[in-house]
Design a protein around this nucleic acid. Sequence first.
DNA 1: CTAAACAGTGGACTACGCTCCAAGGTCAAG
DNA 2: CTTGACCTTGGAGCGTAGTCCACTGTTTAG
Lengths: 121, 121
Amino acid sequence: MLIGELAVQTGMTKDGIRFYEKVGLLTGRRLPNGYRDFPPEAVPWLHYVRTAQTLGFSLAEIARHGEELRDAPDTAEALSALLAEKIRLIDARMAELAALRADLDARVGTGCPLRAADPVS
Amino acid sequence: MLIGELAVQTGMTKDGIRFYEKVGLLTGRRLPNGYRDFPPEAVPWLHYVRTAQTLGFSLAEIARHGEELRDAPDTAEALSALLAEKIRLIDARMAELAALRADLDARVGTGCPLRAADPVS
DNA sequence: CTAAACAGTGGACTACGCTCCAAGGTCAAG
DNA sequence: CTTGACCTTGGAGCGTAGTCCACTGTTTAG
């Protein structure tokens, strides 16, 4: 698959895809003419990358996790460990969100909690 | 409260605090000598800002929300609306995280799901 | 009076995650 | 053989969120 089609199928720009390759999120095969050639699996992979990214994982983290997987002696086990680790991170983030939510919930109707901190009032 | 003490009490740098003031997260009173003078409420406010920020809200968003509050005719009502809005956002984020978590969960032990997308293997 | 410990400003610089652009190579159709 | 659509590279530029620095002013203690 050439870069343009991958761009269409993932909703990314070509420049974005090239950037992702540059930072190691995608490894590049080249056709004899120098064009990049992506396997179809690149599509779900990029969707996964976008999802993980919007959830607060940096591209470097995502790339590093990919590499850890690639270099693991026992892939199935390494994969499980990595996913378990990600799940722990997600749980931690969810807990933080729950705490903020509870905090805001508690402030609703209790006067002027945020504004009190804003000296303009 | 002078900037140095606020920095100590919030764990921020003075430069960071000045930056926050510059982008409108903090409004500056000045002493006759030109020094910034912060009310004690700035401490919980900055803690709140940091929390909201780590949860994915941009400084611009946080500042804008603060302004919306300030400009609202009925502060208590506006506050409730704003907090309700934030809570909705948080719920949406939590739902996304839950979805990713379930996705990862489902992948654990099912072969080579991420690696399949990484053409190096 | 001077030195130390604070404060102020402006501007350069960083890292991340892109986006845009110019100049040029490749390929299929007419 | 040219046109157009596609691809390549390198480099500049941008927005966000700061950090760091030099130089200068202010306050306090000895």
